[in-house]
Design a protein around this nucleic acid. Structure first.
Lengths: 342, 342
DNA sequence: TATATTCGCTAAACCGTTTTAGCCTAAAAA
DNA sequence: TTTTTAGGCTAAAACGGTTTAGCGAATATA
């Protein structure tokens, strides 16, 4: 209804220039030796008129938006939801807001989203880049907007990134299974072309190799990029096949497949860990209340989020620092529960 | 590195006015009878120079941001995560982006968040208002920004809102338990002052009443606003108390308490549904893969999200329509699984 | 007394768009 | 021939701030 009050409104009311008002309200009164009396008056009137600066105008002039653009696969996926939350928290602490976009792991979508946010909306990006998005990331490097990749990265592109040691994690998970006597260990994975997933597969294979177990390629199932419950079900059906003894354990490389996997095992009437043991990545609530709580490689989401924001803001504040990119690899947290027997 | 190209750059290159360029690029060439030759040239050069309009400037001038502000309790909570995603989807379909804020159910935070976004960032709000935020919502009504409340609302404030029939849902859930022979039905709830939670409690009580079961106030546990696992654990410990027969079923009013509740029952070695049957609200993944998949009142998240966006955009596009507020109540979806026996 | 310095403040440009008002020329109508 | 109309385009204001450059009076210094 009522027009919002602007700088000029205050200036007019007091019979001073809007320059003065701007300076005072930005705390630069002293610095520009505006008299205390006037400063007080300005602040008083600003409060009276409930002045709220228009951030758009501010941003337009200063080139700063105090907003971070976040592109992840899907905010509804608890893994990204929690990560997003951590990023939001750390950003808020530093006076930044965040604009979320879910790319659905689609390169076209993420391209559009980057382009959109590049139209003045954000000061920088935190991105979990989908497959085949190398080009957009390279394009982004050429713009002057800082960015940090999370969860995955592109080895051939020199950029900031925060990831976990996926190879080691998968190695440990697999070794854990082997140590408990499991021998026919399957692996169900997805997005197999992304480095993080590649690394998980490498870790899995390496663990088998180091334990003298021959890799059976039929035991590795790479799901489609956009996987649904029925795809996981089909994979498990194939793996368990005719007789129950085809496999005795499964490594799920994400919690999304893991959850679908458990559902499928339930449908097939297979007990965890008696019929089949499982290990997974990530740590959704579901894993805690499963009848056989799931042993899993939890990612340090708080730390990933914090570091991503910190690295990004450091670069936003000092564009010169981009000379050296930050490549950070964190450890996963091995949570041992009951899904591999006891 | 390279300065972004602006309207003037294109204008200068072609020796025309930026007015003309703006008109052409906004598809108003014909309307303003700019010659076809010039139109073509402009569009060509714009593409060549990779022109991307500065949305800040655009927004400043037009007063439109094409952004929706979304305030929910916690984007990491799968319920809000999924809801947020639906809102993001519908908004994207209509050419809007969304700025997420997690309020942690804190009125102070949501106040700050509303104020922040009111500084020019958004065209309207979708809000899940925390307790004690009536005043901010009233203030918001006085600004000229449209908004829609979701999940809860304030009866004494005339506003748009999209909710579900919580009373009926809780009534049905409780009746379901009673029909299966359970008699000592506890209810663990939270944020009990919010209407949605109040209604769930009313539904629960009404169901008991209608079945001739006397309400035992000791069986209703209202948790603190910021509840953690240990609080739920304590509540359940009290409920099950000395002998196992104190209660035979529990109604959880949110999935967050529900999940914590199942964890607690596990710790206490109580079997679902043999020792204690449970019913809940919402439908997180966890409920599907619980050893005893949880019977629950799932909310129609897609519809809620869609309607919220549609109602909001209708009002954004036609501010006059706010004469009549939209109050929409949807049905929950009763998903029967195994947690109440079979 | 003349000059330099400090003090307190402001005009105007600028950020990159949209939009209003209107100019000039050529063709059509009177 | 004069007046309208139409065609094709532009200057300048506006959105709401920040920032640069600098002005005039009072005080301090030489």
């Amino acid at each position: 209804m009522i027009k919002k009050t602007s700088l000029s409104d205050i200036a007019q009311k007091l019979g001073v220039s809007k320059t003065l008002v701007s300076l005072v309200l930005n705390g630069k009164g002293k610095e520009h030796r505006i008299s205390d009396v006037v400063c007080k008056k300005v602040m008083e009137v600003a409060r009276e008129m409930n002045y709220q600066p228009n951030q758009l105008a501010k941003s337009l002039r200063t080139g700063k938006t105090n907003t971070i653009g976040l592109i992840i696969a899907d905010i509804a996926n608890p893994f990204f939801g929690k990560l997003g939350r951590e990023i939001e928290k750390e950003a808020a602490r530093k006076g930044y807001r965040v604009m979320f976009c879910s790319s659905d792991e689609s390169a076209e979508k993420s391209k559009l989203q980057i382009e959109m946010m590049l139209q003045g909306h954000v000061d920088g990006f935190i991105i979990s880049p989908p497959m085949n998005s190398e080009e957009q990331i390279r394009d982004l490097s050429r713009s002057n907007k800082p960015f940090v990749l999370i969860d995955r990265f592109f080895p051939e592109i020199d950029s900031n990134y925060i990831i976990v040691d996926n190879q080691e994690a998968a190695y440990n998970a697999t070794t854990h299974l082997i140590a408990r006597g499991y021998k026919k260990i399957a692996c169900i994975t997805v997005n197999a072309d992304l480095v993080n997933m590649k690394d998980r597969l490498i870790g899995y294979k390496k663990a088998l190799l180091d334990s003298g177990i021959k890799l059976d390629k039929n035991l590795v199932k790479e799901l489609q990029f956009s996987h649904e419950s029925k795809d996981v079900f089909k994979a498990i059906k194939q793996l368990t096949g005719k007789n129950k003894d085809c496999i005795d354990a499964i490594l799920f490389t994400t919690s999304k497949v893991g959850i679908m996997g458990i559902e499928s095992l339930n449908v097939l009437g297979l007990n965890i860990p008696n019929d089949i043991a499982i290990v997974s990545f990530d740590d959704p609530d579901a894993y805690k209340i499963c009848y056989s709580p799931v042993t899993t490689m939890a990612q340090p989401l708080t730390e990933i989020g914090k570091m991503a924001v910190q690295v990004l803001l450091a670069e936003i504040k000092n564009p010169g620092s981009s000379i050296k990119t930050q490549k950070i690899t964190l450890k996963t947290n091995f949570v041992i529960r009951k899904s591999c027997g006891s």
